[in-house]
């Protein structure tokens, strides 16, 4: 609001910054603590009073981690699963979003509302039968069970439809048609390049979402070599809770890739989150 004095020193400013700082400390302290605990032995983590500074056991903890479980294999598994989901998700959602935004066809409205309605159905309703389906497909303990069901989503189609509607101009599409482009070529050569900035944001969004998936991989995967990183982390916590320094080293390494990703794309990601909420 422009009514507030923007220059000079005042008491309300001090309170304001104190308020902001308190939440900043709350937000950052756990990350700091993650590094502190990952660099200490278990006895030192649970000593009283706790040590508030970095220790020197990060290397030892890391060695334990790698000796006990296929940690980096789990990271690779997660990269593979989340990467595949993201690519398929981007392709199918942008294709459908483009179709809904730029074409009129019979039953379009009904199909669109049907799609939106599916968002209301809570996922856990079909948890048991989904597992049984995967069993009949012989997909238990495979990545198909993780990747295929997540290849397209109502949310993604809705998002990309909203974006395509306002940014892809009909003139461009008509020009393409005159040049003899079919619908798929229109999508590939006209729509896709225009959608690229949103697709980046949306892609990171889906990548992080599936990277953090826990319940479904926990049900589907039963071979530790195939575990995704979340399942590994939680089983690590369950089995090796006596070696907490090691568990925290694992937690730290599992968090870093996401932080790096976020550091690179933070503006895009935050923009996408807020714009989505305001528009809907």
């Amino acid at each position: 609001m422009s009514t507030v004095d923007t220059k000079g020193f005042s008491l309300s400013k001090v309170f304001l910054y104190i308020g902001l700082l308190i939440w900043l400390v709350f937000s950052v302290f756990p990350f700091y603590w993650m590094i502190v605990t990952a660099s200490r032995g278990t006895s030192s983590i649970f000593s009283y009073p706790p040590h508030l500074t970095f220790g020197s056991d990060l290397v030892v903890n890391t060695q334990h981690l790698l000796a006990n479980i296929p940690f980096f294999r789990s990271m690779l598994n997660s990269v593979f699963v989340s990467g595949s989901i993201t690519l398929l998700h981007l392709f199918f959602c942008s294709l459908a979003g483009f179709a809904f935004a730029k074409y009129e066809f019979p039953a379009k409205k009904q199909l669109f509302y049907l799609m939106l309605a599916t968002m209301m159905v809570p996922g856990q309703l079909g948890l048991v039968p989904s597992f049984i389906i995967m069993k009949t497909f012989h997909w238990v303990n495979t990545y198909y069970a993780l990747i295929i069901p997540g290849a397209a989503s109502a949310f993604g189609i809705f998002w990309l439809k909203q974006f395509s509607e306002s940014t892809i101009h009909d003139d461009l599409l008509n020009a393409g048609r005159i040049d003899g482009c079919g619908n798929f070529r229109l999508y590939y050569h006209v729509a896709l390049p225009i959608m690229r900035p949103t697709l980046t944001a949306f892609g990171i969004f889906s990548f992080m979402g599936s990277w953090n998936d826990y319940l479904w991989p926990l049900i589907i995967l039963n071979d530790p070599v195939r575990y995704t990183i979340q399942v590994t982390l939680s089983s690590l916590n369950g089995i090796y809770f006596k070696d907490y320094g090691m568990v925290m080293a694992g937690t730290l390494y599992a968090t870093i890739p996401l932080l790096v990703l976020f550091a690179i794309f933070s503006n895009k990601l935050m923009g996408a989150v807020t714009v989505g909420a305001i528009k809907s």
Binding site: L24, V28, M34, W211, S234, L258, L259
Partner: peptide, 18 residues
């Protein structure tokens, strides 16, 4: 302020256990 949302829920819970 956005950082907490970027960590995975599993990692966060394991950490908050401490």
């Amino acid at each position: 302020y956005f950082l907490p949302n970027v960590t995975s829920l599993v990692a966060q819970t394991v950490l908050f256990y401490i």
